[in-house]
């Protein structure tokens, strides 16, 4: 079976400093990969390199496109990469403000990706927007409200709806539950789990919260100082950590 994403030796340097280095892995359809590490571990740098927001200094990121097979997105032309970003890929930012248009209504936010791929029937666009708002548990009567009128959790769910409306196959998430209240986090994680399963999504989730990866990720990569120090099944890495740093991380988590 062809991997959906094939990452080979990705490295990004800031002068002499390592952003991330020697990262390789394969991701298959329906798999969720968690990337954990503390601040400065390189996890966000890695995510941005994979998602095309940063240009890596070395390595390849091959994606199984619908029509052209495995293509290296690092060397793709910008128009193609931007098109990928609107259709097959999605990016959920930590702060909803970075992933939404705050001066456009919720319906307009969700409909934008549809209009960007030539949806031209207002009523149909609106119907799809209402459907997606429902799937992320936002009431249909909020469709014309601006995101500025939403709570943090709702904004984040709106961001997810906006990203998933075109049926992407790969979702990048950067601390999707960061900054949200605990109960709101739980609801969001439920939602993500359900959507990942229903839509057979693959996802790469960067977080510093081990509870989030345990819930969402099938596989886990632990990063420290720009390198991957351990990788494997999520429950195995968390229950039987091998590397000193992973053991430290796991033992530091407060139990409730």
């Amino acid at each position: 079976m062809t991997p959906l994403l094939q990452v080979e030796n990705i490295a990004k340097f800031y002068g002499a400093r390592i952003g991330c280095a020697d990262v390789s892995f394969d991701l298959y359809p329906g798999e969720v990969m968690g990337i954990v590490g503390e601040s400065g571990s390189g996890k966000s740098t890695l995510l941005n390199c994979l998602a095309g927001h940063l240009v890596p200094d070395r390595g390849a990121v091959r994606f199984d496109t619908r029509t052209g097979g495995l293509r290296n997105t690092v060397t793709m032309s910008e128009p193609e990469r931007r098109m990928l970003g609107r259709t097959d890929w999605a990016f959920v930012h930590q702060h909803a403000r970075d992933g939404l248009r705050m001066n456009v209504s919720a319906g307009g936010n969700v409909g934008e990706r549809l209009m960007a791929v030539n949806a031209r029937h207002y009523a149909e666009i609106r119907t799809q927007a209402i459907d997606w708002l429902g799937r992320v548990e936002i009431m249909a009567d909020r469709i014309d409200d601006r995101p500025t009128a939403f709570s943090g959790g709702m904004q984040q769910r709106l961001q997810i709806a906006r990203n998933l409306v075109t049926g992407p196959r790969l979702v990048f998430m950067d601390e999707p539950t960061g900054g949200l209240d605990v109960s709101v986090q739980a609801r969001l994680l439920d939602l993500l789990r359900g959507l990942v399963r229903e839509m057979r999504l693959s996802a790469i989730i960067v977080t510093h919260d081990l509870a989030v990866v345990r819930l969402l990720a099938d596989r886990l990569m632990v990063m420290k100082d720009g390198h991957v120090v351990e990788t494997g099944l999520t429950d195995q890495v968390l229950d039987d950590p091998q590397h000193a740093y992973t053991q430290l991380l796991v033992s530091s988590v407060l139990q409730v």
Binding site: R101, S105, G108, G111, E112, L114, M115, V117
Partner: peptide, 9 residues
Amino acid sequence: GLMHVKLYE
């Protein structure tokens, strides 16, 4: 796409 968002709004 954004232009149609304006009209949608």
